[in-house]
Design a protein around this nucleic acid. Structure first.
Length: 484
RNA sequence: GACCCCAUGGUCUAGAGGCCUAGGACAUCACCCUUUCAAGGUGGUAACCCGGGUUCGAAUCCCGGUGGGGUCGCCA
């Protein structure tokens, strides 16, 4: 049975790179009818961030990723916090010490820093010299009470091969690895050590993670071998890079799942977009559900090259989902954005009807909220270039005439309103467009938006007439506020 | 710097020796539609990093170069 895991460190927010890695793991498990496990790697107390774990779990859930075992749902291979597995780590550490495959190192941070500086000056690869490796068992320092770390005795010769499922065999020479640290001076294990025990004890069959871990893998393999543990298969997926081809960071704008949500990107769209970064389906379909993706997903279609994320395509993807999703779902997703923009929908048209009116024109939930705002509050300002273009000459009179005609209408819908405009245009001997544009500006304050007749149908007769008259009056009295 | 990975349009990618006159998507440009803006439709610009091999034949295989990325922590 396939068992894979995603093992985030709760030191910040869920990045899109991590989200994508989690997604690939999840899909791989689903495709092979296996299990997807979530483990929290919280061994480094100093870097823990309050609330980070909950945020990451929530982020994953929002993307539609569900785990079969994890810190919140439990499972047969717990605990699922790395920090709670300390006893097992200690035991394995002692085993390596006892079998003389690891040793205590008393070098201080300052000494190591100096050593590194010297090596860099000599243009040598920075690596631990192995000074403490030679200490005899009866060296008095062992009983001195001095703090020490535990280092791996890495073989001075030979090679370690990572048999990567995506890239094939990758060979590393052991001598360049250096005697890496297994446990810190406070006794807690370091990532490269703990991850081996945890993956093994949780019966992980496939370790699928970011490419940045490829160089760590030979170290982990050495630990597996020293402990005589069965190894999982490894697969390193390409990274996601920023548009300037460098590692994703805060200066590149939104990089976390949470930020994208705040920008009005639907989680379904983000998931779908992330899916297409580094993987492609066997068919030329881009919009797909997670279920469909799970059917198609496998490692052999994962790209070898790092992908650069493109906000434009993400937004396009989002616009697709804005049209695809049921109005009721969008209405719910929109709530926080309505609040943020102080839009109160209780008194105006039905929210779902309103969304239906403008959804095709919006790329994000922010734009969607902006697009329907006029339905729930009268415009306070009017686009400057619209005033110049559509509010000149006889505009006030025409708006008033229109208001009068419309107020007489017995039936209020797209067709009856359109007929009224046609009749009015004929009477005034002008093109229909010459009435449409000033009307839109008067009613919405904007020159762009949905078709006028569908818009007015939703706005309603009473409100339409009132707004037309109000604009006419404001125009006549010269107290029209232009948009800054 | 050492080691490792990678290399198809601006971006995401298809392509597993002849199906390639290199396909799709986003972006971009033009036109059509039109009541504005979108959407939609049609068409266009745009790529196999370079150099050597192997082969009758290479985007696809091999080698070298170049370029980009990653790793070298008592972080994960």
């Amino acid at each position: 049975m396939v068992r894979v895991r995603f093992a985030p460190s709760p030191t910040g927010t869920l990045h899109i790179g991590g989200a994508r890695t989690a997604l690939f793991n999840y899909l791989f498990a689903k495709h092979h009818h296996g299990r997807f496990i979530l483990r929290v790697e919280d061994t480094d107390r100093a870097r823990l961030v309050e609330g980070s774990e909950q945020g990451m779990l929530q982020g994953l859930k929002s993307l539609g990723i569900v785990w079969d075992e994890g810190p919140d749902v439990g499972g047969d291979y717990g605990p699922y916090h790395q920090s709670e597995r300390a006893a097992r780590h200690k035991e394995a550490l002692q085993q390596l010490l006892d079998t003389d495959q690891a040793y205590r190192c008393y070098c201080t941070a300052d000494e190591l820093a100096e050593e590194r500086k010297r090596q860099e000056a000599l243009k040598e690869p920075p690596r631990y010299s192995g000074r403490c490796r030679l200490r005899p068992a009866d060296d008095p320092i062992h009983s001195s009470g001095l703090p020490f770390v535990v280092r791996m005795k890495v073989p001075a010769s030979g090679v370690t091969v990572v048999d990567d499922l995506i890239r094939g065999p990758v060979t590393f020479e052991n001598r360049i690895l250096g005697d890496f640290v297994l446990a810190k001076s406070d006794g807690t294990p370091v990532y490269n050590f703990a991850v081996v025990l945890d993956d093994h004890d949780m019966a992980i069959t496939h370790v699928i993670r970011g490419e940045e871990h490829l160089s760590n893998t030979p170290k982990q393999i050495l630990v597996y071998q020293a402990l005589n543990l069965a190894m999982p298969a490894f697969a390193h997926v390409p990274m996601i890079l920023a548009p300037d081809h460098t590692k994703l960071s805060k200066r590149h704008g939104a990089t976390s799942v949470e930020e994208y949500r705040e920008q009005g990107i639907l989680p379904e769209a983000l998931t779908n977009y992330l899916l297409l970064l580094g993987w492609s389906p066997p068919e030329e379909t881009e919009i797909m559900t997670l279920e469909q993706a799970a059917q198609w997903f496998d490692l052999d279609r994962v790209q070898h090259t790092a992908a650069i994320y493109d906000v434009k395509k993400l937004q396009w993807m989002n616009s697709q989902y804005l049209r695809l999703l049921p109005l009721s779902a969008l209405a719910e997703d929109l709530q926080p954005f309505l609040q943020a923009q102080h839009i109160h929908v209780e008194t105006g048209p039905d929210l779902e009807v309103a969304i239906g009116l403008v959804r095709e024109r919006a790329r994000t939930l922010v734009e969607l909220a902006e697009g329907i705002a006029f339905l729930y509050a009268r415009p306070e300002t009017f686009e400057t270039k619209g005033i110049e273009k559509h509010f000149q000459g006889e505009a006030p009179d025409r708006l008033r005439a229109l208001a009068d005609t419309l107020s007489e209408l017995a039936q209020w819908n797209h067709d009856t309103v359109m007929e009224a405009y046609d009749k009015e245009a004929l009477r005034l001997q002008v093109k229909r467009a010459e009435l449409i544009h000033p009307s839109r500006l008067a009613v919405t304050g904007r020159t762009v938006g949905p078709g006028l007749f569908e818009l007015l149908e939703v706005l309603g007769q009473k409100e339409t007439v009132a707004r037309l008259r109000e604009a006419a009056t404001a125009l006549e009295e010269g107290r029209l506020m232009p948009t800054p």
